[in-house]
Design a protein around this nucleic acid. Structure first.
Length: 278
DNA sequence: TTCCAGGCGTATC
DNA sequence: GATACGCATGGA
């Protein structure tokens, strides 16, 4: 990692990272873009620790972590932004496949964020049969109520009625069930992290409102299980249209990272035939 | 007005 | 085990 400390800021040189790509590709829901003198500036959190981060230009690979410490960089943000992984190497692997190659070319600055497991669980319960702007709205209201993103312990004893200000609809009862099962140790995320993928998925599915897809999202985004491959409506189309015989071999072990490139590509790239409705 | 959104629970066969 | 349907809410 290449960085220098400049007063209260840290200047980070980092390849294969683009803030728009990474923070707006549907894996995280509470990074907000804010006006600044730089190309892009976002404010977000890992658990309760805030970060304001700027990307200086589109392609320079220079970032400013504002008003932070070397300790937070090394103990939080280095892991959160997955900086130990060589995404250049990963993308060279993916380029064996023509679809993935296009996806990487379209948004090569995507990185898989290592997010908090509890936040991922709550967020992706909210995500079901929902659209991304509205997911962000519900999560924003959740954070307002609790003064930051709540832990499952913070929400202990909550009822669906008490969650009605979220306007989460039928998902409120799922959130309450999730909180209750965690409180009663019916599900233990720390144990699930250590389980084989199939077993971990089944365990998460004990929570009402957590099915195969949400469970895979929790494993991928909240537990850094890069072999987890969540299939939503978009990825279902990708599988049927591009990979009728299964994923290419170059994704072995990192199917989840490939999924993230594919998801963003089909949803937002005008050149992708699946993007155009019909 | 109708359709759809990072799905899932339930009923039915 | 497979399939059909309802579900809260809000934007297009």
């Amino acid at each position: 990692m290449d960085y220098t400390i400049k007063g209260k800021d840290i200047i980070l040189c980092q390849r294969d990272l683009d803030l728009d790509n990474t923070l707006n590709c549907g894996q995280a829901f509470r990074w907000e873009i804010v006006p600044s003198e730089h190309f892009r500036t976002y404010i977000g959190h890992y658990k309760r620790t805030p970060l304001k981060i700027s990307q200086q230009d589109k392609d320079s690979g220079i970032f400013i972590l504002h008003n932070t410490t070397e300790k937070d960089l090394l103990s939080i943000w280095y892991d959160y932004f997955d900086l130990s992984v060589d995404y250049g190497e990963l993308k060279r692997r993916f380029s064996e496949d023509s679809v993935l190659s296009r996806a990487c070319q379209y948004a090569g600055g995507i990185r898989l964020l290592r997010q908090d497991a509890e936040e991922s669980l709550i967020s992706f319960i909210i995500s079901q049969n929902n659209n991304i702007p509205r997911i962000k709205g519900i999560i924003g209201r959740l954070c307002e109520i609790y003064g930051g993103f709540p832990s499952l312990e913070d929400m202990r004893g909550v009822t669906p009625e008490e969650l009605s200000p979220l306007r989460a609809g039928f998902r409120a009862k799922y959130l309450a069930d999730c909180v209750q099962k965690a409180a009663e140790n019916e599900i233990q995320l720390d144990r699930i992290k250590e389980m084989p993928l199939d077993e971990a998925q089944k365990e998460l599915m004990k929570i009402k409102g957590v099915g195969p897809k949400v469970a895979m999202c929790v494993l991928l985004f909240g537990m850094y299980r890069t072999d987890a491959y969540p299939v939503d409506v978009w990825i279902k189309r990708v599988n049927e249209h591009f990979y009728p015989n299964g994923l290419p071999e170059c994704t072995q072990g990192v199917q989840g990272i490939a999924q993230q490139y594919l998801f963003h590509y089909v949803r937002t790239c005008p050149e992708c035939e699946l993007n155009k409705r019909n």
